[in-house]
Structure formats: structure tokens, C-alpha cells
């Protein structure tokens, strides 16, 4: 267990040594909220305010960036440069590596989520989640769905570049088609169906819902879908885990 904690600590430290990833993970979403806020900040959107809709969705988007970039692409790089291979001849088991990176990803995501919430409260009078225990549980379920999902998808890549390309594709697809940036009601019916095929859609529904409308028990279908994605991804990710590309 000691090794898992050490590795998670070190990976977190090393994350902060890379200024670029710090910017993209922590500041970029804040800038985006601010940008959208300066466009629609003052108009209520249906029954909710701008921040009530946008802050929970960007917290959701941050789960995607953390899982695909902080976890997936980094591990693909470790596979390519032989970092994982070096672990292979030590007693460190593969599940411990994945566990350590999951802990690191959770810590980094939590920081970014708190930043976004505080920014929303200061700038747009956002309230803390109505059903805070439900929101926390929703976040946990979303992490459990997305981390293994991204780890599996990026492990199919041959190298860091293609892992980053796959990650960007998924991120952009979900960013624009999951209701995070543009309300789904504005889109053609076909795209509305597409968005329901993207896992981020359910994360956003769940986060917006528990933040503003009702407890997690009202969202059985979303929870079910996300847990299924998580379970299937864990099986696939561990079945296809590779130490190196050779």
C-alpha cells in the first residue's frame, strides 16, 4: 500500500511541475466559464441561472480532461518510453499503478472542481449544491465511469501522439455534443440522439440535476448507465493492460 501512496504523491507533484498541464487543467475551464459568462451571464436560462447550468457541466468536462489527458495520455507516454516496462521487473503489481494514477487523477480533479465552484460563487452568485451528498456521490460515480473508460481507450494507442489525438477527439466531441457548452434544445434532433450516446451527457445530467433540482435517487437511469460504463471499462482496461508496445 505504501508504494501506491508514494507513487500517487509523486505523480501529483510531477503534474504540478508541468506548467502547461496546470494551465489546461485548472485555468482553461475558468477562462471558458468567464467567457461564456460575459456572453450569457445575466440572462436566466429556463428555470436556472447561467452558473447553475455551466459550472456543474464544466466540472463534468473536467472529469473528461483529467481522465483522458492527466491519466490516459500520460500512461500511454509511460508505455512508450519504457517507464511501465521498468516497473514490470519489480514486485509492483499493475493494479497498484492504475490505483495510484486514479488517486492522483481524483486529487487533481477535486482541486479543479473546487476552483470552478468558488469562481462561480464569487462571480455569478452560484449556490453550493442543493443536494451536496448526492452531488459528491454523482462525482464519484462519474469518476468511476470515466477514468477506466479513458484508460482503456488510450491504451489502444500506439504512442503518446496518437493517444493525445484520440483524447482530443473524444474531448471535442463531448464538449460540443453533450450539452456542456451549447444547450441540446438548440440542436437538430439527430444530434440530440448522438449526444445521448456520449457518456458525458449522463454525467452532466446527473451533476446539473443534483446541484439544482433533486437528489441522486431521481436519476436512476444516469447512475445505471455510468456504472455500467465503469464496470465494462474496468474489465476491458485490465484485460488489455500492456506494459510495453513490444
Amino acid at each position: 500500500m505504501n508504494a501506491v501512496i508514494k507513487l500517487a504523491q509523486l505523480e501529483t507533484k510531477m503534474f504540478f511541475r508541468d506548467r502547461l498541464s496546470v494551465f489546461w487543467t485548472f485555468l482553461f475551464p475558468v477562462v471558458m466559464i468567464w467567457l461564456f459568462g460575459s456572453m450569457f451571464g445575466d440572462n436566466p436560462m429556463g428555470n436556472f441561472t447561467f452558473a447553475e447550468l455551466f459550472v456543474p457541466s464544466w466540472i463534468g468536462v473536467n472529469i473528461v480532461t483529467t481522465s483522458f489527458f492527466t491519466l490516459g495520455t500520460v500512461l500511454a507516454g509511460y508505455r512508450e518510453t519504457g517507464v511501465l516496462r521498468r516497473y514490470q521487473s519489480t514486485p509492483l503489481a499493475s493494479w497498484k499503478i492504475l490505483a495510484a494514477h486514479t488517486v492522483q487523477g481524483t486529487v487533481i480533479f477535486a482541486i479543479s472542481a473546487v476552483l470552478l465552484m468558488v469562481f462561480g460563487m464569487l462571480m455569478y452568485d452560484l449556490h453550493i449544491p442543493e443536494y451536496i451528498a448526492s452531488t459528491l456521490l454523482a462525482l464519484l460515480i462519474s469518476i468511476l465511469a470515466f477514468f477506466p473508460f479513458a484508460l482503456f481507450i488510450t491504451s489502444l494507442a500506439k504512442n503518446t501522439q496518437s493517444a493525445a489525438a484520440i483524447s482530443s477527439l473524444f474531448l471535442n466531441l463531448m464538449l460540443f455534443l453533450s450539452g456542456a457548452t451549447f444547450p441540446l434544445e438548440m440542436m437538430p434532433t439527430v444530434l440530440q440522439y448522438v449526444s445521448k450516446a456520449l457518456p458525458l451527457y449522463y454525467v452532466i445530467e446527473l451533476l446539473r440535476g443534483t446541484w439544482n433540482a433533486g437528489p441522486i435517487t431521481d436519476y436512476g437511469m444516469e447512475v445505471g448507465i455510468l456504472l455500467t460504463i465503469g464496470l465494462v471499462s474496468v474489465i476491458l482496461a485490465s484485460r488489455f493492460f500492456r506494459w510495453s508496445d513490444k
Binding site: R17, D18, Y78, T81, G82, R86
Partner: peptide
């Protein structure tokens, strides 16, 4: 056992 691999790396920023 201990193994030193040919041309592998550890984390760059470690």
C-alpha cells in the same frame, strides 16, 4: 532479481 533495461526511461520530471 534486479533489471536494468536497455534504453528505458523513468518519468522525465522525477
Amino acid at each position: 532479481i534486479g533489471v536494468q533495461f536497455q534504453a528505458t526511461s523513468i518519468q522525465k520530471k522525477m
